[in-house]
Every structure is written in structure tokens, then in C-alpha cells.
């Protein structure tokens, strides 16, 4: 078992590491949120290292930490994506290819049409989106964006769907007219 004080020390180390690596942590609130997320992830990783890999070394905590930072570097939902994956601590998945010209659905204007190119997020959510017709070649249009950071209503394949803000901000699209410009 890893002592909690031991782990705490490593969080601090890792937090510094994070601070250095990303500029995302600017506000205190943000840092707190981050730490919480890390805490959960570390816990799972250390459990994995200890019981599944049967590894009971003394540096368990720091191993967990470095494994975590390593996995963060390699993780498909890190750096190169415009916005960091927020709701996929477990089972994160992505489909399609991310390019610079893509924007999330929530940035569309009402009644603007676009083609879905890239989706990231929880595995189950992605599967559900695919079932509902949001595949990586589907044409969608934004019908309405609810106020107060509410969900969006989109039209896809003749049906209308309500998508939560968070899910919609992880679906990236290419504007149809933009593509025309490139062709010309």
C-alpha cells in the first residue's frame, strides 16, 4: 500500500511538473481541479502497478507518477488537440483525423453546415454518437445553441439531436464552404 503522505508529496512534484509542462494551470481553481483529476488517475495507476503487475517496489508512488506523466505525453487526447480531453479519464477514444482547420460544433453559427471530421471523448459516448449517425463523414448543421452554456441542437441524417455542451465541444467539423475555397 502506498502511504497517502507519500503520494501527496508526489502529487506536488507532479503538479510542478504539470505547471512547467502546460500553461493551462493559471488560476488556483483550475489547479485544484487538475489535482483532483490527477489524484483519481494516480490512484488507479498505483492500484494497477501494485496488484495487476504484481509490482511492490518502494518507489511505487513515484513510479505511478512517472507512468502517469509518460502516459500523458503519449496519450492520444493530449497536446495536439485544441482543447484537452476533459471527461475521459478512463476509456478515452478518438476517431477521425484532427487537422488545423477544424472547429468544434459549438463554434458553428446557427444553420451553418459542416462535415464531421474528428470526435474524441469517452468510448461509450463515441459509440452512441456513431449509432445516432454522427460518423466521421456525416454532414451536420447547427440548429440551435441553448443559452447559459446549454446543449446544442443539431440536424444529422434527417434527424434532430440534442447534444450536451461538453460532448458537442469534442466533435470537430470542417466547414463545407471552407473546403470549396481550398479547392478553388
Amino acid at each position: 500500500m502506498v502511504k497517502s503522505s507519500n503520494l501527496k508529496k508526489h502529487y506536488n512534484n507532479c503538479l510542478n511538473h504539470y505547471k512547467y509542462k502546460t500553461e493551462e494551470i493559471v488560476t488556483k481553481k483550475n489547479a485544484k481541479k487538475h489535482l483532483k483529476r490527477m489524484h483519481r488517475k494516480r490512484h488507479k495507476l498505483s492500484f494497477f502497478i501494485q496488484s495487476l503487475l504484481n509490482f511492490n517496489g518502494r518507489n511505487n508512488g513515484s513510479d505511478t507518477c512517472s507512468a502517469d506523466t509518460l502516459s500523458n505525453d503519449l496519450s492520444p487526447c493530449s497536446d495536439h488537440i485544441p482543447k484537452r480531453c476533459t471527461n475521459c479519464a478512463l476509456g478515452c477514444e478518438e476517431v477521425g483525423k484532427l487537422e488545423d482547420n477544424l472547429i468544434p460544433i459549438i463554434k458553428l453559427e446557427e444553420h451553418q453546415k459542416a462535415k464531421v471530421r474528428f470526435i474524441k471523448g469517452d468510448y461509450k459516448v463515441i459509440r452512441r454518437l456513431l449509432d445516432m449517425g454522427i460518423t466521421t463523414d456525416a454532414t451536420i448543421s447547427l440548429i440551435k445553441s441553448a443559452p447559459l452554456n446549454g446543449p446544442v441542437e443539431i440536424a444529422v441524417r434527417g434527424s434532430k439531436l440534442a447534444l450536451g455542451r461538453e460532448i458537442a465541444s469534442n466533435i470537430f467539423v470542417e466547414l463545407s464552404d471552407q473546403k470549396m475555397k481550398v479547392k478553388n
Partner: peptide, 12 residues
């Protein structure tokens, strides 16, 4: 535990 977001059909 985990929470998911809203994915719901708005049928006519």
C-alpha cells in the same frame, strides 16, 4: 462514478 452528457433525439 462517471457521468455522461446529453445525447437525445428531438423527434418532431
Amino acid at each position: 462514478g462517471e457521468s455522461t452528457g446529453l445525447i437525445m433525439e428531438l423527434s418532431s
